[in-house]
Structure formats: structure tokens, C-alpha cells
């Protein structure tokens, strides 16, 4: 017996929180991304060479999309579960007839939905600044959903692990941001000299950025199958960790 009504309750409650905080959740990231497009796409991009046959302005679109998606998915989901822990309203989730699956689908589904809305708005905004076409639209949407879901799961874990607001920000700020900037958002790792090129291959974000770039332009620094595979593996690991959290009640039940 699955309590789907609970999933819907959580899902719509979370989306309502998104609506309440529309500025922080949507307007701010879109503004930030637009600035990147203006600076790197239009202003500098005009003087940059095309990368692998793709105009520089268009080249950075998937990377910037990934940059926003990773940080927004993570922070949305982490806030979503951290807030009830912080206010104490989590008692209701813990006493309701809901299991891991319903809870996760509700929280992670909502966080992923927000990321998808954000992704759509950013892609439309990008059209204002640069000219780009998506070679494999279905794969692109599928990949974006996969990444949004994976990093929402990561955020969920963070939100359960964190015992203060600053800890919520540590991982996105200190790990995700730098790895994304170094992960080929603004350049192809083929442009790097050795040994930095080999070092870059240890950065998991490289595979995410390039996976998305492949769905856009049909070419990338790494094999698309590797990107999909690694992302799916990451998703599976997150789900396993969360299943363990619910089973043991870690940080949830005393």
C-alpha cells in the first residue's frame, strides 16, 4: 500500500514554498545566469574562437545551465527537508503513514520540478543573448531530469545531515561551485595542457557538463554513454544512502 496522497501533499506544499519564495528561487538565478550570458556570451564571446565548431556564446549555454541546475537542485531539496527539521514540523512526516518512497517522491519530485522550470526559463533567456540549437532535444530533457533528480537527492541528504544553516551552504559553495567552474563550463578540457587535462577527468562535473553539451551539439569532450552511466550511478548511490537513512532513522528519529 503506497500513500500517494502523502506524496501529493508534500509535493504541492513544496511547490507552494517555491511560489512564496519566487524571487530567491527563480528570479535571482535567472538574473545571475543572464549576467554570465551578457559578459561571457555577448561581450567576451564575440572575440572568442568557436570551440570545436560551436560558437563560444552557444558553447557555454549547457555549462551555465548545469551550473545553475546543480546549485539550485541541491539547495532547494536541502532546504525542503531541513526547514521541517529546524521548525519541528517534521514530527508530522515521521508520525504519518508514509515510507521512504512517498517522502522522497514528494520532496525530490518538487525540487526537481523547480529545477526544470528554472532550466526552461534559463534556456529561453539564453535565446535573448546567444543563438543556439539543441541537436537532441529529447535526450537533453531526459538528461536534465536525471541531473535534477540526482542533485535533489544529494540536497535531501545534505538537508538531513546539516545541523545548522551554514552547513547547508558548505557543500554547494565549497564543492559544487568550484568543481563546476573547473568542470568545463567555460572551456573545453581539450584546451587544457597536460597534466591538467588528465586531472580534469577526475572531476565528476566534467562528465555532467559534457553530457549535457553532447545532447545540445552532438559532440563533447567525453563519451555520452559514460556521462549518462555516471549520472545514473550517482542517482543510485544517493537513493541507497537515503534508504539507509530512513531505515536507521539517522538524524530523524531519536
Amino acid at each position: 500500500m503506497i500513500n500517494f496522497r502523502a506524496t501529493l501533499a508534500i509535493y504541492f506544499h513544496e511547490l507552494d514554498r517555491f511560489r512564496r519564495t519566487i524571487f530567491g528561487s527563480l528570479v535571482a538565478p535567472v538574473l545571475t545566469t543572464s549576467l554570465y550570458f551578457i559578459v561571457f556570451g555577448s561581450a567576451i564571446g564575440g572575440r572568442m574562437q568557436a570551440v570545436g565548431g560551436v560558437d563560444y556564446g552557444a558553447f557555454i549555454v549547457p555549462g551555465l545551465l548545469m551550473l545553475t541546475m546543480l546549485s539550485e537542485s541541491t539547495s532547494n531539496a536541502s532546504f525542503g527537508i531541513y526547514m521541517p527539521r529546524f521548525t519541528g514540523s517534521i514530527y508530522e512526516i515521521l508520525t504519518a503513514p508514509v515510507g521512504t518512497a512517498e517522502t522522497l517522491l514528494g520532496f525530490v519530485g518538487a525540487a526537481a520540478t523547480k529545477s526544470l522550470i528554472l532550466a526552461a526559463v534559463i534556456m529561453l533567456t539564453a535565446l535573448l543573448f546567444v543563438d543556439y540549437h539543441v541537436a537532441h532535444p529529447l535526450l537533453a530533457v531526459g538528461y536534465i531530469i536525471l541531473v535534477a533528480a540526482s542533485f535533489s537527492l544529494l540536497g535531501f541528504i545534505l538537508g538531513i545531515w546539516a545541523d545548522g544553516f551554514e552547513k547547508l551552504q558548505i557543500i554547494p559553495m565549497l564543492i559544487l561551485m568550484p568543481l563546476t567552474f573547473l568542470g568545463g563550463t567555460f572551456y573545453s578540457i581539450d584546451m587544457l595542457p597536460e597534466p591538467w587535462r588528465s586531472v580534469a577527468l577526475f572531476n565528476p562535473i566534467v562528465y555532467l557538463v559534457n553530457g549535457l553539451r553532447w545532447t545540445f551539439y552532438g559532440k563533447a569532450d567525453v563519451d555520452i554513454a559514460t556521462s549518462f552511466g555516471l549520472t545514473a550511478l550517482f542517482l543510485a548511490i544517493c537513493i541507497a544512502i537515503i534508504a539507509w537513512i530512513f531505515k536507521t532513522g539517522w538524524r530523524l528519529r531519536s
Binding site: R5, R17, G88, P97
Partner: peptide, 21 residues
């Protein structure tokens, strides 16, 4: 008093009803 302070009364009660299936 563990509550989502930014939500409204009716929504919160409807939310609880949903949570319990």
C-alpha cells in the same frame, strides 16, 4: 509548536489530511 509558520491555516490542515492518506 512545530509548524510551517509561512503556510496558512486551511492549507496546513488540508496538508495533514493528505499526509495521512
Amino acid at each position: 509548536l512545530g509548524l510551517d509558520m509561512f503556510d496558512t491555516v486551511e492549507r496546513q490542515v488540508a496538508y495533514s489530511r493528505g499526509m495521512f492518506g
